[in-house]
Every structure is written in structure tokens, then in C-alpha cells.
Design a protein around this nucleic acid. Structure first.
Lengths: 217, 217, 217, 217
DNA sequence: GATGAATGAGTCTTCATTCAT
DNA sequence: AATGAATGAAGACTCATTCAT
């Protein structure tokens, strides 16, 4: 097992072995998001990861374990990083909100993380552990981040005083709604939003910030 | 109740027979929304409707047909009625928006119609006909309605001039987002919204109308 | 469900339904005994019972449940009946032993009950519940019965005084050994005993009773 | 131990290599006896022998070949040796029988050979070659040995004249029965014999020899 | 019309066996 | 020689659908 007994595994073989879990996760994420957990066959996941059915079970002991891994792995704790970005942000709070939206669109809405959110809303009733995990690891940290943004705006006199716990949803709602559309109707009818994603977010941002403004012009 | 005791087509039997499709639909709606299409067994649907598995297939030729019927039947064209309500509304457009939200919460969010929306977002990738149908029969009429509200506000000088096709989403987003939460995380963690549904909608309405106001105070 | 609502199930259908469990048990007993539990496929059991794979699972929830049912059902508590026979036996104790052997060969060794014994010895390490059940329900009652026979013989002065708990095995051993042979080597090589079953038991009985006799001639 | 430190064919390596088959056989014997052939995974066998799954197949081409080897190897023809012991035995035939039992308990019942017998009875229906082999190589030589003991006793006037082909079983039965118990119920319930192994064999020997005695006292 | 027993295609999962390293 | 990653055929079990009654 140790390097001085057997030669190191051949690079290629080893690289594959180490890459497998991520490849399987990638495949599973796409399929679970697209077709739902129940409608996805493990064989499809394996095929998409270019391995056989049996190989999948070498890395994940069951389909359910795969689902949990999908949710768990795609949530690499980004919140610490974002929290630091937020703390260091120098501009106005409206600009911070605009920046946050831009970052979020880029890093969540248009990556797997968005699909995971869709997956979680679809499957959390059948797998309550998923709900618990997602709530603690994603939703709550996310809310905390947004709450701090709102508080910053209020403290600096940029935003009118509001109940920040309610205000959180002003920010979150456009994001979540977009993701849901993107992974449902948007798959079948990419134009069904009626406008571009850019226009969608611009409109929301604009109106949101007007509504929040302490001193409307 | 056996055939040799009561006359054929006894009222009760007839009533049962005519009620079957609706009872099955009701049962299927709840289960499809709660567990997803794939994870729901037709036998469960039948049991919840108090009929046998075989009977279900007398009324719906397949599970997929049942799904389609669930979506179709729960969308009794309410839009004509709402359109009339809108035309006849006498108050200010902000009040109309508030009224629309109230009506919508009552008639959609807290009825099966909301569940159907959740169901559609979950399953429309697997059943594209569902997406087509829903888009044409629900989304587009809904957008039309909302568009007219916005146009009314702009024409009457109550709302600032905006791209109404984008503005539609300002109204829709809080609604859809609430429904998604209610049928996913909200099932497992009813307090995870952090605030009451009332506060959720009040906050959204308030900020939305502030942002839209032609003459901010 | 009750007779006055629906007509009684058609006789043929009902008869099948009621017969299924026994037919499946019969099939499973033969196959489990012959091939072992693990090597027997449920589909084989179903085929031998002239039903499809799915039908088996309507009656037994799993292969393991089927195994347990096989053991459980084939042990209809015959011990009470035998106990009464023993109590009422009028002849000498040697004759009683001879009678017991004859009864046992007929009712156990040459019926499924013998196969169940073989099955239990093969599988009890993998299914400890089986061992527990068999020990309590079969072995112990069987030992009790044999113990009483020995005590009768000793009390009546027909058998020399021995430790009856050890003596039990004098009686049991030829029986169990015969069953093991019959369901293993005897299947492949029916002549490998070298003598007839009759001769086998006669020899054992004769020597056994000679050895036990209080007054050897 | 790596190749670049010790010379090729280092003694230890060689010794390991030569020991492999025996180690695998030892592991396989234990597991096959304990769990049955079908329920034992080759990976378990390999693990117990401290080699990898692949290595097992270097020494035995298939699981079935391993089974056959297990039976074959554990039966190192001991019969010639025993036959000589028998020929040279100087005491009375009852003493010879007592001696044979003692030897047998020590060398068969309490070694792997006993497990092999249990294994053969469990699997011989699925692997008829096993039955053939065992019958020829073990059962028949064993019967010959026992037959000669009985003949010795009869010829010397110590035993009453009996059909020796039937009489063989008088000797064999207690042995085989004990093994079966030891590897089935005895594993789960070590006290279920009710008495010690010593008492079990003493009782059998005593009664057996009483029954066989030419001149009962 | 209603039933529910029966079916068998389909799915997850296991494991003997192979083979590149 | 040894490894263990990979395979895929096979098996337990599910469930939408059929159909005799």
C-alpha cells in the first residue's frame, strides 16, 4: 500500500480513479436536475461519466448516497469568501447590491449550484435530510450574508429602515425565481421569460433599489 | 348497494361514478405535488381516492395521462373572470395591485393551483407537452393580465414608465417564489421563511409599489 | 369487501389466491433444500409454483421472508399429537421406540419436514433467527418427547438406567443422519448408503435396544 | 520488502508465494463452511488470506475451482496411515473402536475435515463432481476401514455376527451427526446439545458396544 | 362498472472475473 | 507476481398495466 512497497500507481490509472467521483457527481448533478432523482437511472449517470454501472457503486454505495453527495459537494463553502468580499467592499450599498447580483448570477445561477437549488426544491420532501442540510449550509448562510448587506445600507443611510428579515426576500426572490425558470420552463422554451436575463435582473435591481432608497429622487 | 338490491343507476352510485374523475384528480394532485410524479405510485393515488387500482385505469388510460389531466383540470380558465374583474376595478392601480396579490394568494398560492405550478416546474423537462400547455394556458394569460395592470398604472400616471414585459416579472416573482418555498422547504421547515406569509407579501408589495411609483414621496 | 356489497369472489380465482401461499411454500421448500437458499433464484421458485416473479412478492415480501415461512409453516405443531400418542401407547417401551421410529420415518424423513431440517442446518449460521426458532419449536419439543420415552423405559424396568439427556441422542442421531444423507449424497448417489433405508433403521433399532436393554439376553 | 531493496526471489517472498495456495484454501474452507459456498464472496476469502482479489485468481481459476480444491486438499489421503494403525492395533476390538472414536474426534471432528464434510453435504447437489469425489475418496475408504474393524470384532468373537455393511453406520452415524450439529446449531447455540461432546461420545460408544457385544454381561 | 390478482419489463445493486499497470 | 479498478451479467424487488371475474 505504501510507496516503498508497491510502485506508485500508474499516473493515468490514478488520475482516473481520483477523477471518478467528481465525474460521477457532475453527471449525476446534470441528470438529477434535468430529469429528477426518481426518473434518472443510475446507468444513465454511469454512462454520462463514461463508466459502467458497476463502477458507480465503487464510489457511491447507493443512488441515494449519490444524491446526497451531489448536494453536499456542490456547496463548497463559498460563504466565507463572499463574506470577506462583502466586508471589504468600498463602494455604496446600492453598488454592493448590484455587485452581489452580478456575482451571484455568474457563480450560482449559471453554474451547477443553481441546478442543485432546483433539485433540492424538487426532492426535499422525499429526502428530508436534504432539506435540513441545505437549510443549514446554504439558505441560512445566504440569508446572513444578505441581511448584513441590508444592515449596511440602513446604517449608512442609503436604505430606508426596514425589517431586514423580511427584506432578505426582496433580494433572494428574483434570484431563486430565475433559477427555477431556467431549470424548468426555460429548458423547453428559452424565450419564455419574454426578455433577456440581463434585462430581467436589471429591472429587478432597478426597482428594488428605488424601493429601498432612503431618499427617493 | 349490490345490484340486486338497489335499482341500476341508483343516485348514489351515479353520483360516485361522476365524482370519480375529480376524486382521482384531487388525489393525484396532492401526491404528485408532494412526492413528485415518478415517486408516486398509481396505487397510492387510487387508495387516496378510495378506489381500486384497476378503477383508476377506467378513467385515465395511463399514469402520464393522469398527470396531464391533473395539470389541465386544475386550470379551469379563470383568466376571463379575472380579466373582467380587472376591467371593472375602480380604484387606483396600486390598490389594484394590492388587490391582485390578495386574490392571487387566496386563489392560487393556497389552493391546488400552486401545487400544479410546483409540479410543472419539476416535471416539465420530462413531459414537454406539459410545458407547452402550461405556457399557453397559464403563463401567457397570466402575463397578459399583469401587463394590462402595469399599462393601466403607467397610462394613469401612477407608475413610472417601464418596459412592461420586464415589469411583469416584478409582480410574478414574489408569487412564484413563495409557491416554490411552500411546496419544498416549507413542507419540511414551515418557519424557514423567517417571517409570516403576510409579512412576506406586505414587504414585497410595499417595496414594489415604491419602486414603481411615478412620484416617489 | 363484505358479502352483501360485492359478490363472493369467483370460486376459481379465490381458490387460486388461497392456494398460492402453500404452492409457493412447497416450491420454495424443494428448491431451498435442494440447492440451498443462496443458490435458489426467486424466479425459479415462482416458475415451479406456476406463477410469475411478481406474484411471489404479492405473498411474501422478500426472499428471506419466504425462507422463514418455509421453516415456520412446515412445522405445524405436531408435537402435541405425538405427545398424546406416546401417553396412550399400551405396549412395551422397546415397541414404543420401534413405533416412534416408524412414525418418524413416515412423517418426517420422507416428507418435507426432513428437508427443512437439512435446510436449517445449512442456513442457520446465516439466519440466526432460523436457528432460534427451530431450536425452540422443533428441537426442544422433540427432545422432550424422546426424553419421556426413555424415562418410561427406565421406570418400567425395560431400559437400564442412563442419563436421559445423553440418551436422547441415541435415538435422534440415526434419524438426523439419515436425513442428511438423503438430502445430500443420497440425491446424487441413491445407493451410497450401501443398504436399504429399512435395513439402516432396523440395524440401528436393533443395536440401540440391545444396548439399552435392562436385562440383556 | 520492495523489489529494489531485497533481491528478487528473496526467501521471504518465495515463502509467501509458496504459502499462498494453502493460505487461500484455509481461508476458503472456513468461510465456505461457515457461510456456505454461495454466500461467501471471493473477496472475503482473499481478504482473510491477506491478498487481493486478483491474486486469488492467479492460484485458482474460478470460485468453483477453489471449492473443489478445498475439498480435495483437505483430504490428504490419511486412510493408508489409519489402515496401518488398525492393522497394528494389539488390543481388543471394543478398545479399537474406542480408540478409533478418539482419533476421529481429534483428527476429523475438531479439524477442518469436519467442516469439509458439512460443506459437502450442503453443496454436493449443486456440484455433483464434489459428491463423486468425496464418495470415492472419503466415504468409501472410510467405510472400508470401519468394515474391517467390525469384521475383526466378529472374527475374534467379540462382536455378535451382524451384517457389516449395515453395521458400518452404527459407527459412522454418531460422528457425522456430531459434525453437522457442530457446524450448524452448535455455532449459534453451543449448549444446544444438552451435554458435553465427551458425554455425547461416551454415551454412544457405551451403548454401541453393549449392543454389539457377543456376550452381554 | 369495479375489482384486485397477475404479469413482466424495468431498476437498483452485487459480485465473479478480467486486465492494465 | 500482485494489485485493485473496471466490468457486466445476474439477481432481488417494484410497479404500471392488463384482464378474468
Amino acid at each position: 500500500m505504501s510507496a516503498d512497497i508497491s510502485p506508485p500507481d500508474s499516473p493515468r490509472r490514478t488520475r482516473r480513479k481520483e477523477a471518478r467521483p467528481a465525474e460521477l457527481l457532475e453527471a449525476a448533478t446534470c441528470l438529477f436536475v434535468e430529469k429528477g432523482y426518481a426518473a434518472t437511472r443510475v446507468e444513465e449517470v454511469a454512462a454520462r461519466a463514461n463508466v459502467s454501472k458497476g463502477t458507480l457503486f465503487l464510489y457511491y454505495p447507493s443512488k441515494e448516497a449519490l444524491l446526497k453527495a451531489v448536494v453536499r459537494e456542490n456547496i463548497a463553502g463559498r460563504f466565507v469568501e463572499w463574506s470577506n468580499e462583502l466586508r471589504d467592499f468600498a463602494g455604496s450599498t446600492p453598488d454592493l447590491v448590484r455587485y452581489a447580483f452580478a456575482v451571484w448570477v455568474e457563480r450560482i445561477a449559471h453554474t451547477h449550484a443553481g441546478g442543485i437549488y432546483k433539485l433540492m426544491t424538487s426532492e426535499c420532501c422525499n429526502f428530508p435530510e436534504l432539506a435540513t442540510f441545505y437549510l443549514e449550509e446554504v439558505i441560512k448562510p445566504g440569508h446572513d450574508l444578505v441581511r448584513r448587506i441590508l444592515q449596511r445600507g440602513i446604517e449608512r443611510g442609503e436604505f430606508r429602515p426596514i425589517d431586514v428579515n423580511a427584506g432578505i426576500h426582496l433580494i433572494m426572490t428574483p434570484m431563486f425565481s430565475y433559477i427555477q425558470w431556467r431549470h424548468s420552463m426555460g429548458v423547453c422554451y428559452p424565450d419564455s421569460l419574454g426578455i433577456s436575463a440581463q434585462a430581467y435582473f436589471d429591472m429587478h435591481l432597478d426597482n428594488l433599489l428605488r424601493g429601498l432608497a432612503a431618499h427617493p429622487q
